[in-house]
C-alpha cells in the first residue's frame, strides 16, 4: 500500500482545529455547507418518522371508517366545524408567519424574524385554546373514547349492533389523533421559544439560519397533519 501526502495549503479543505472557523460551525464539520446539508437532511428524515408514526393512526381511522361507515358519518356531526375551521385558518396562518420568519433570517431582518417567531408561538397558543374549548364540550356531553363514552343518545337508530362499532370508536380515534397532534403543537411551541431566544441573541443571519428553517419545516408538518385531520374527522359527509 503506498501512502502519499496531499498538498497542504490552499488546496486542502479546512480542518477541525482551524482558526478561520465561523462561530456557528461545529468542530466536526469541514464547511458550513456540509453542516447545513446535514442538519436539513436530518430534519427531513425525522419528519419521515413523524409521518410514519401518524400513519398508524390514519390506518386505524381507515379501518374504522371502512368497517362502520354509517357510524362515522353519524358521529362526526357532533364535532364542531366552526371550531375546527377556525383552527385550520389559525394553523395555516402560523405556517405563513414561520415562513416569513425564515425569509427574514435570510435577508438579515432581525426585528421581523423575532416578531414572526412570536406570532407563530401566539397562533399555536390560539390553536390550543380553541382545542381546549372543543375538548371541554366533548367531555360535557360524554363524547369520550372507548369505555368512558356515555353519550348513548347518538347513533341509536344505526343498524350496527351496539356496542360493536359504536361512536366510542370514532371518538377514541378522534382523541388519539388530535391528542397526538396537540402534543406536537406544544412541543413546537417549546422549540420555537428556544429558537426565539437564540434569535434575540442575534445568532441567525444570511450565513446561518438552518435552525430557523428546520423548526419551520417541523411546523409545516404539524400544520399538514392538521390539514388531513380536519376533513377526515370534521367533514366526513
Amino acid at each position: 500500500m503506498t501512502t502519499t501526502t496531499a498538498p497542504h495549503g490552499g488546496a486542502a479543505p479546512p480542518h477541525g482545529h482551524d482558526h478561520d472557523h465561523p462561530s456557528f460551525l461545529a468542530h466536526h464539520f469541514d464547511t458550513p455547507a456540509q453542516q447545513e446539508a446535514s442538519a436539513k437532511m436530518g430534519m427531513w428524515v425525522f419528519l419521515a418518522t413523524e409521518i410514519l408514526m401518524f400513519s398508524g393512526l390514519f390506518l386505524a381511522y381507515a379501518i374504522a371508517r371502512w368497517a362502520y361507515p354509517e357510524m362515522v358519518l353519524e358521529a362526526h356531526h357532533h364535532l364542531s366545524i366552526p371550531m375546527g375551521g377556525v383552527n385550520t385558518v389559525v394553523l395555516i396562518t402560523s405556517s405563513f408567519t414561520v415562513a416569513v420568519g425564515v425569509r427574514a433570517a435570510k435577508i438579515d431582518n432581525q426585528k421581523l424574524l423575532q416578531w414572526m417567531l412570536l406570532a407563530t408561538i401566539f397562533l399555536a397558543g390560539c390553536f390550543l385554546v380553541v382545542k381546549y374549548f372543543e375538548y371541554s364540550a366533548k367531555f360535557e356531553h360524554g363524547l369520550l373514547p372507548g369505555r368512558f363514552y356515555t353519550a348513548d343518545y347518538i347513533a341509536k337508530d344505526l343498524t350496527v349492533p351496539s356496542p360493536l362499532g359504536g361512536p366510542h370508536t370514532f371518538f377514541g380515534i378522534y382523541f388519539l389523533m388530535t391528542g397526538l397532534h396537540g402534543v406536537h403543537v406544544v412541543l413546537g411551541m417549546c422549540v420555537m421559544t428556544w429558537i426565539y431566544l437564540r434569535a434575540r441573541r442575534g445568532e441567525f443571519g444570511p450565513h446561518f439560519f438552518t435552525p430557523v428553517e428546520n423548526v419551520g419545516l417541523y411546523w409545516h408538518l404539524v400544520d399538514l397533519v392538521w390539514i388531513f385531520l380536519f376533513p377526515l374527522l370534521y367533514l366526513v359527509k
Binding site: A67, Y68, P145, G146, F148, P163, H168, G172, F175
Partner: peptide, 11 residues
Amino acid sequence: LGIGIFDPAMG
C-alpha cells in the same frame, strides 16, 4: 382509556 381498537367486544 379502553378505546376498544384491539377489543372485539367494542368493535
